[in-house]
């Protein structure tokens, strides 16, 4: 008999539904050879995501762009997914594998909740994600990496918590903020300078969006606010009362104000 895990049920009963097999070419396992490196460039990759703690819980956000090599693959990709009422996952890496993992993880948590009649603890959810990432390792070794950030509100500790992962399933808890993906380092620089513990919600939202903006400025793979098409990064707040999306109008307002401020200071510099 399987336990209460949907992922374990799939791996034992329907392994063909999971993309865990290793890519082969003429019987040879594909690794870092030229043709493989070429084909990896034709796969869309998702880029910058971040999470940070604030007074009421934790914020999790991401830009919207997916790239294939130096080309834009998609402008409206969603990288932040609600897992349940108290947690969310943001994903960076090979877009297809990432979105699939986020979807499977959502089902996994709901499946457990329905079978057992209760929620997993936040640590339990974070561990489960780590096991699923370990299952993806063969694909990750061939370039189809999935690097998520998992964030949630821990009802037993009364605080927001952030977990980051490596491709082997290694799980590390962050105490303040974290950002990863191609523009992750740039977003982290902004957060490092401006972050303070226990920020109020409006300040924390502005900072998260500003960090994503800086990542988009420095990193070619990260999409900034697209005023023409009306595409903005997405952001979720996870508080004691549950998870909530930040509405697009608010995000637009924050960006318009931020850009106006930057224009002003830029003009001053010129004088």
């Amino acid at each position: 008999m399987w336990n209460s895990s949907f992922y374990d049920f799939l791996t034992s009963q329907y392994p063909n539904m999971l993309s865990q097999s290793v890519l082969k070419y003429d019987g040879e396992i594909l690794t870092n050879n030229a043709s493989h490196n070429e084909s990896i460039k034709n796969i869309p990759f998702g880029t910058t995501i971040l999470a940070m703690k604030y007074r009421d819980g934790v914020i999790i956000a991401g830009d919207r762009m997916a790239t294939e090599g130096y080309q834009v693959a998609a402008r409206r990709v969603e990288k932040v997914y609600r897992c349940d009422d108290y947690s969310a996952i943001a994903i960076s890496g090979a877009a297809g594998a990432c979105i699939e993992m986020a979807r499977l993880f959502q089902i996994e948590l709901e499946h457990y909740e329905k079978l057992e009649g209760m929620h997993l603890t936040l640590d339990g959810k974070a561990n489960k994600l780590s096991l699923m990432l370990r299952g993806n390792l063969p694909l990750a070794m061939q370039g189809l990496i999935v690097i998520p950030i998992f964030a949630g509100y821990d009802l037993s500790k009364n605080e927001g918590r952030i977990y980051k992962y490596d491709i082997t399933g290694g799980r590390y808890e962050e105490t303040e903020y974290y950002s990863t993906g191609s523009g992750g380092k740039d977003a982290r620089s902004t957060l490092k300078k401006l972050y303070s513990a226990d920020m109020p919600e409006d300040k924390a939202i502005s900072l998260a969006l500003e960090a994503l903006y800086d990542a988009a400025e420095e990193d070619i793979g990260t999409g900034g606010p697209d005023m023409i098409r009306g595409i903005y990064p997405t952001l979720k707040m996870i508080r004691k009362t549950g998870i909530a999306d930040l509405d697009e109008e608010t995000i637009e307002t924050v960006y318009k104000r931020m850009i106006a401020n930057r224009q002003k200071s830029h003009k001053k510099e010129k004088l």
Partner: peptide, 14 residues
């Protein structure tokens, strides 16, 4: 009941 939930989740996933 458990078999039913597995049936439903599997179908919804596929």
């Amino acid at each position: 009941r458990k078999a039913g939930i597995r049936h439903a989740d599997l179908k919804g996933y596929a």
